Computed example of a mutant assay.
Amino acid sequence: MRIEDLTLDELHDLNELICKRIDYLRLQNDINVLTQLRLGQKVHFNAPEGQVFGVVIKINKKSVLVVSEDNRQWKIPPGLVRVMKEV
């Protein structure tokens, strides 16, 4: 299949399938992260300001509330949070 050969309707259908697949994969990733998170756990994530380090203070179904080292609160999707590895 060559994308150049698809009609506009076929491209819209393909786009819808791709968007649904992306949403599904993001949801699976969020669920995976949520099962690993605990209150008080040290985490990090990327923000426009750069890498942010903080502690989980609240876990919701679709977001995680993190307080950063500079006492700012961040409400972010679970899929963006990375758990700090203990050393």
Rank of each mutant, 00 (worst) to 15 (best):
61 K>Q: 13
27 L>M: 12
62 K>T: 15
17 L>C: 05
68 S>E: 04
22 I>C: 01
52 V>R: 00
59 I>R: 09
40 G>M: 07
44 H>R: 05
77 P>I: 04
53 F>W: 13
45 F>T: 02
45 F>C: 01
12 H>Q: 11
26 R>Y: 08
4 E>T: 04
43 V>S: 01
21 R>L: 12
43 V>F: 04
72 R>A: 13
29 N>P: 04
3 I>F: 10
64 V>N: 03
50 G>R: 00
62 K>C: 09
55 V>Y: 12
54 G>H: 02
18 I>C: 05
26 R>D: 09
5 D>N: 08
12 H>W: 11
2 R>E: 04
45 F>L: 07
67 V>S: 06
61 K>E: 15
44 H>L: 06
56 V>E: 05
29 N>I: 12
41 Q>D: 06
84 M>N: 13
86 E>D: 15
70 D>W: 09
86 E>Y: 14
63 S>T: 08
1 M>N: 11
71 N>M: 11
32 N>V: 00
66 V>M: 02
11 L>C: 00
24 Y>C: 02
55 V>W: 12
79 G>A: 04
36 Q>H: 12
22 I>H: 06
39 L>P: 02
82 R>C: 08
12 H>F: 11
32 N>F: 07
33 V>D: 04
61 K>G: 13
21 R>A: 15
33 V>Q: 03
4 E>P: 00
60 N>Q: 10
19 C>Y: 12
77 P>C: 00
65 L>G: 01
32 N>C: 01
5 D>I: 02
61 K>F: 14
16 E>N: 12
25 L>Q: 10
27 L>N: 15
3 I>T: 06
3 I>G: 07
76 I>R: 05
75 K>L: 12
69 E>Y: 03
25 L>H: 07
5 D>P: 00
32 N>S: 07
6 L>R: 01
24 Y>R: 11
82 R>P: 02
79 G>E: 09
47 A>I: 05
7 T>W: 00
59 I>L: 12
33 V>I: 13
61 K>I: 11
48 P>R: 07
75 K>D: 04
7 T>Q: 03
11 L>P: 02
64 V>G: 00
67 V>A: 06
57 I>V: 14
71 N>Q: 14
84 M>K: 14
47 A>F: 13
49 E>G: 10
85 K>L: 11
35 T>Q: 15
81 V>N: 01
15 N>S: 12
3 I>N: 09
60 N>F: 14
44 H>G: 05
87 V>G: 10
31 I>D: 10
64 V>A: 04
